[in-house]
């Protein structure tokens, strides 16, 4: 079994994994970081979005071995202790989540949008979320949350 090493949420980690292990499986099953979710088997739902070297990525589309040496951030790596990241706080303030299952992927995806476009319009947000499915919120409050989060991050 190949050994993979990477930094996850700022910590160096290393493990022997089966070659077919996906990054999301590695995060969930080897590291116990179960905040990253699996909602489909065709890379469409976006519940597994994490950041790899600063870019959002569906962690079911990458083998753990492909992330060798990478810098990975998951939903668990965002808050500062009990203090939520401004984007997490925006979701809380604007009721941007219901069952919570799509939420980690939504937040991680939203952060990548905002780093690429610090002042997105509602339409920008709606189009960006093409790769993230939510069945609970009708997206109304997710869009509102991301717009508020973008504003907060811009300061």
């Amino acid at each position: 079994m190949p050994t993979v090493s990477m930094a996850v949420n700022g910590k160096s980690v290393s493990a022997d994994v089966e070659p077919r292990t996906l990054l999301v499986q590695y995060l969930r099953e080897h590291l116990g970081l179960t905040g990253t979710h699996v909602g489909c088997d065709t890379s469409q739902c976006g519940a597994c979005v994490v950041h790899v070297n600063g870019e959002s990525l569906k962690s079911c589309t990458m083998l753990a071995a492909q992330a060798e040496g990478a810098d990975v951030t998951t939903i668990e790596g965002l808050a500062n202790g009990d203090e939520l990241h401004p984007m997490q706080e925006a979701f809380r303030e604007n009721h941007g989540l219901q069952c919570g299952f799509c939420t980690p992927g939504m937040v991680m995806s939203a952060l990548d949008l905002v780093q690429k476009n610090s002042d997105p319009s509602e339409q920008d947000v709606r189009e960006w979320l093409e790769g993230n499915l939510c069945r609970c919120t009708g997206y109304h409050n997710i869009v509102k949350s991301i717009l508020a989060g973008a504003k907060a991050l811009k300061g």
Binding site: I75, E76, H95
Partner: peptide, 19 residues
Amino acid sequence: IKRVEDQRFLTGNGSYTDD
């Protein structure tokens, strides 16, 4: 009022069956 459940869901600390 804001939701009690959000803190755990927003930080990846929910506990779904597969978790």
